[in-house]
Design a protein around this nucleic acid. Structure first.
Lengths: 329, 329
DNA sequence: AAATAGTGGACAGAATCGGTCCGGTATTAG
DNA sequence: CTAATACCGGACCGATTCTGTCCACTATTT
């Protein structure tokens, strides 16, 4: 029998896992009097948890949309579904805010009970995305969370950093933003000691902790993006240019932001759009194009045209039951 | 200046959003003494929140994996990413437990602040999944959550049900399981008054509430599945039989449980597997098969072979730049 | 009209809370 | 090896909060 704090939290959990519940039932489950349950409800409301009451017969308490999100109590299975979903979202490009997806993932992963973590690992191992483009290494959860939090609340952080030559240093940073680029995560911001903008690779940061106080929001349009734009002229083996007929959503479903850039004018109408893809390898492109199931034109490279034709031939052979030529190269 | 409950929750939030934090910092943020912070930490530990301490210089408190999942405090953006992820997971078939995915989604949706809900709706509307197979209607959040919770904890529920003829009735049910089938959600269980197994459509249940007490777990292998197997001989237009070479995960990535049944022996090895798909239409099958990028054989129907060949021809034409024949039918 | 359910004030004893003080232990830098 | 940094947790005690009880009131549904 926990303290009041615990009981209030248990009440929240009960409300979250069901529809409408009567005071009597809640009181029974919590082992307190009905009057106390009502007092707990008042407390939850004070905490901005949107508890709604329904009076009269078939009445009770239930949760409703509110002003801010209350703490969520998920079961193991639900947490697993959420993590898999976040991965799926990143892979399909449905996710619009990569950082939010990563931080959410990190928050859950960090407290995931071991037996659930094991299930997750098994599933992921079995997946073995050998043929998916643009899978990113996830950075250290603690560092990412601390810095993402600092960015949001404009708080300075102290980081321990190891540079390319293996030199360790401790710096105070005013972080502007966190960006994923080419499979790596970076934080950009002002080095408070040097007084100039710098970019650090997250995987080179051993430890990060927020410092008291806060800094002024940087002026100008999205400095994080500005700093990272230095990467824009990256070195990829293949530069693919396509024209695809469809809506932005249709195209993004298979070619997420991390791999393709796309004209996004009139996103909801079907029209021809120029799509540019940078890739180390081309072999994953034909199946993705096929899955799109939209009319397309390969502008370059010619090599890709041949790959698509070869891929289509394999499909035809399979369909005709010519098993000998059905295997992959 | 909230009550202790609120402060404990704030502490949890602080721990969840960052790496290691010292007592001093936490005390400062919470506006209480350091000793009190330590007492709060004790409380969190009592609540099964796995707070870990690191002693010595650079020490502090942080979260660690524990035995059960603590309440999660997500930001708006993170909640949005999670919901989109859950949808993506369902669409791609990465999700293994559909019910968990739905209940997680319902839990979040129900408390989602309106301004976030609006963002979500906008995104979803823009998506307009015209060409995806097997999109399910989501049932009423309250009813689904209540019943899923009752299934897990073996609690009887009282439901208000409207049957096919529009007759309303109130029943006491011992729910065995929740199943999604052919675009609808069902709960199966024993009707406590009648003493026999019944299946109810979730969308026909107006209200559900858990009753005190609990019932004995039903004997025998997965009664939910057994009852639903009555649906097995459903009336679909096309029965597709394929053989696909690959691991279960590879195949499930494009052919989720909701559309295909699959031999799951030796799931992690690449081998030929029989895959059965039931569908109203066949036109979505070729792109899905192509996206799989695995060797396959179409056993039946012959019509599908022709469709795949036609699809491959379209691909080839596109690749060769013959725009005239590149359009969809 | 009856039954079901939430609302909220008042009261008093019990329990909790939170600040202060303090001697202890673990870890790391130098 | 030592100093500095942090966590650890017992003891004490006044102030505050919590909880159960009792009760009259309102809203809904059948």
């Amino acid at each position: 029998m926990p303290r009041p704090t615990g009981r209030v939290l248990t009440l929240l959990e009960l409300l979250q896992s069901g529809g409408t519940r009567t005071v009597a039932e809640l009181a029974d489950r919590l082992g307190v009097d009905g009057r106390t349950v009502r007092r707990y409800v008042d407390q939850l409301i004070d905490l901005d948890v949107p508890v709604e009451s329904v009076r009269g017969r078939y009445g009770g308490y239930r949760l409703a949309p509110g002003y801010r999100l209350p703490p969520l109590m998920l079961s193991d299975d639900e947490a697993l579904a959420v993590l898999l979903g976040l991965i799926a979202g990143r892979r399909t490009g449905l996710t619009t805010d990569r950082t939010a997806s990563e931080t959410a993932s990190a928050k859950i992963r960090r407290v995931l009970p071991r037996h659930v973590a094991r299930r997750l690992d098994t599933l992921l191992a079995a997946l073995a995305f050998t043929d998916q483009p643009g899978e990113f290494d996830t950075p250290d959860a603690g560092v990412l969370l601390t810095i993402a939090d600092a960015v949001r609340h404009l708080r300075p952080v102290s980081i321990r950093y190891t540079d390319r030559e293996g030199r360790r240093s401790e710096r105070t940073l005013h972080p502007y933003g966190v960006v994923a680029h080419a499979g790596r995560w970076y934080v950009t911001g002002e080095d408070a000691q040097l007084g100039e903008d710098r970019t650090f690779r997250l995987d080179r940061i051993d430890d990060a902790r927020t410092l008291p106080g806060s800094f002024a929001a940087p002026a100008g349009p999205d400095p994080a993006q500005r700093v990272v734009s230095g990467f824009a002229t990256a070195e990829y083996r293949h530069e693919v240019t396509l024209r695809i007929h469809g809506t932005v959503a249709q195209i993004r479903a298979r070619l997420p932001e991390t791999v393709a850039s796309l004209e996004e004018h009139e996103p909801a109408t079907e029209r021809w759009r120029r799509v540019e893809v940078r890739a180390e390898r081309l072999d994953w492109v034909p199946p993705v194009l096929a899955a799109l199931d939209r009319p397309f034109v390969v502008e370059r490279p010619d090599e890709l045209r041949d790959l698509v034709v070869a891929f289509a031939d394999r499909l035809t052979s399979s369909a005709r039951g010519e098993r000998g030529s059905a295997g992959r190269p």
